[in-house]
Amino acid sequence: MSAPMIEVKNLWKEYGNNVVLERMNLQVKAGEFITMVGASGCGKSTFLKMLLGMEEPTRGQLLLDGKPIPNEPDQARGIVFQQYSVFPHLSVEQNVILAREFERSPLLGKLFGRARREVLEEARALLAKVGLSHAAKQYPHELSGGMRQRLAIAQALIRRPRILLLDEPFGALDPGIRKDMHTLVHQLWQEHELTVFMVTHDISEGFALGTRLWVFDKLRRDDQAPEAYGANITYDLPVNRESLAQLKERDYG
């Protein structure tokens, strides 16, 4: 068995007296698609932020390839938020090439001439894959919510991150559009050999997309002091293809 990509060892997260997460122990292999569900405030977004490097564990360790995960966001871990993920002052194709511009132009963060044409070519291929070719010159405010999330995904993928983090990315979308997005994310996960962590409120979405489903909840509860105990993963379910097919039939039939 290959070494785990991400390892969580006795991890705690506290804000003052408020324990958010406690005693978490987990291993994640490269290529898994993990969906996280749970009630509001159960710590799944906090866990995602720790994976991203926006928050640090209070106790315990969060390891990436055996080393503590970097404590600020970087290009190894892409993110798509529910909103505000794309830049309103840049057109669709400018949004996508931005990551390449940061990479190749340390001084100006902007490419010109041939270098620019090269990355635009790359961006167009990616935009075709997410179905946004026709909107390359448009600005985010001219796009629908679904198109904006497609753009956010294309933008996150151009530098080929190993990990893709999705924070309720489809929460604000219509059910029909959400289904299209599921197909897209699933396809990109396979093509780009990504390890995906997705926070969602929709448990059927969690089953439909993931290879593994985590349910966040509190194992210990004190009604007099609701903040005294943190949440943990109460169910760690492998999702197999048959149950997926059944679910698809039931939900989308």
């Binding site: 970087d74 290009q75 871990r77 309103p88 511009e101 940061f102 340390p106 963060g109 933008q155």
Partner: peptide, 25 residues
């Protein structure tokens, strides 16, 4: 904040964020 975090996941330095994300907006 989402925009600033997103820029960092795209590999932006502080200088890049000032130049390409903050100043234009």
């Amino acid at each position: 904040t989402e925009q600033l975090v997103k820029a960092q996941t795209l590999g932006a330095s502080t200088w890049h964020i000032l130049l390409r994300v903050l100043i234009p907006q």
